[in-house]
Design a protein around this nucleic acid. Structure first.
Lengths: 218, 218
DNA sequence: AAGGGCCGAATTGTATACAATTATGCGGAA
DNA sequence: TTCCGCATAATTGTATACAATTCGGCCCTT
């Protein structure tokens, strides 16, 4: 039953390349040669090409016309840019979610919030990673309930790229988990109150705080 | 020297499929069978597949996993949604452009504005089409000068989809070309004055006016 | 020595054959 | 009749060969 020769070669290629970019083994500016990658992964060029396309749409890879694909080069300024664009879009989304979210949706968000607080209380080495996963789910949950798939699609690549950027430029940034938990509570409260303006400004505060995480006493 | 047998099959496939979607020959929900399209265009499946990927990232085509690609179905409500998202993003872009734009950039915008006014003054059957082309260049010009390639990439698909949506749901909408020209002048003035807030609100006005074009006396 | 054009190598673009997956329609059982 | 399962057809996924393009260096000219 070792019969999983390669059911999703394109997906495997995608994950493989993405992982190598995240780890920094493929540095920005490096050429991504289809044949080399194919040999390395053990598939043909076809799924590699599909993976590169996908990575390009997600903004991790740059390819112009017929020229070879390269790992996209990022400037540190783009970290802040991503935060600002996320603040713009996600605050708008939060405002819409305030009128559109269902009780079930609110329950999900509360559950995630509780889990995050538990992670923070527990602490430990793995806390930041666990927290980040739950945090992504929290933000994505709000996007699900804002009633606009298109808006959600706009934000997705921003989050994606931000992961690379943060790791490259600010790898050891302090997360201020406790402060984030408070923000999440505020956001949930605003959504529960069906107050778009409040939700919007809370979300903006939350994201722009992450941009400037150097406040004392948080 | 008839030597252009098929140098850019993928691009040709892309344009072909896109045109058929725009014309409504491929209706929303229709399956896009790679082999049929390939035979019709006269290329192999490979470039057709690339074209479909591209159309998918632009939001005109929907494809989930390995299932067949379909022409994306649009709801009329998405017309307004696109306008609102464009208003959100382009007003932000205009605000940034107010401080980032170069004199040369301003000159370009003024030139486009002048051309648009000439088209309106001239009138004729082709005026709306000519105007739309120049109008797109105007909006894209501002995005070029806002200093954020990422922001520009976010807006591009919105404009793209909007073209399909408008044609499908509001094909004979009145353009209010004269009013748009005034808006453009206002926007240019705001950029020239290096006033972000002014540029931002003028752009928002411009786009939300297009959303509700039923005002009298424009 | 600097610059431009040409040739070979590296790489991507396209076509096609085949494998894997998904969809469809039929037949049988409840 | 309705629903489930299975066989078969339709379609997409992958591999590979070949064509076209781009890249890089060398040589020739100035």
């Amino acid at each position: 039953m070792v019969k999983k020769p390669r059911q999703w070669a394109a997906d495997e290629a995608y994950r493989h390349i993405r992982r190598r970019i995240f780890r920094g083994e493929l540095a920005p500016g490096d050429s991504l040669i289809e044949q080399d990658l194919a040999a390395e992964i053990g598939v043909s060029r076809t799924p590699v090409r599909a993976a590169l396309h996908r990575l390009e749409t997600e903004g991790l890879v740059y390819a112009s016309g017929n020229r070879r694909a390269m790992v996209r080069e990022f400037a540190e300024a783009e970290v802040d840019e991503c935060f600002e664009l996320r603040a713009l879009l996600e605050s708008y989304a939060a405002g819409r979610a305030a009128t559109a979210i269902t009780p079930a949706g609110l329950a999900e968000l509360k559950d995630l919030s509780t889990q995050m607080e538990a992670v923070v209380a527990e602490g430990g080495e793995e806390a930041p990673v666990k927290f980040a996963t739950l945090n992504d789910q929290f933000h994505d949950g709000i996007l699900w309930h804002c009633g606009s798939q298109r808006l959600r699609d706009l934000i997705k690549p921003l989050v994606q790229v931000q992961l690379v950027l943060m790791q490259r430029f600010r790898p050891h940034i302090e997360m201020h988990l406790q402060r984030s938990c408070w923000h999440h509570r505020e956001i949930i409260a605003a959504l529960e109150a069906r107050d778009p303006a409040w939700a919007e400004t809370q979300m903006r505060t939350h994201l722009l705080s992450a941009k400037n995480p150097a406040v004392d006493g948080a």
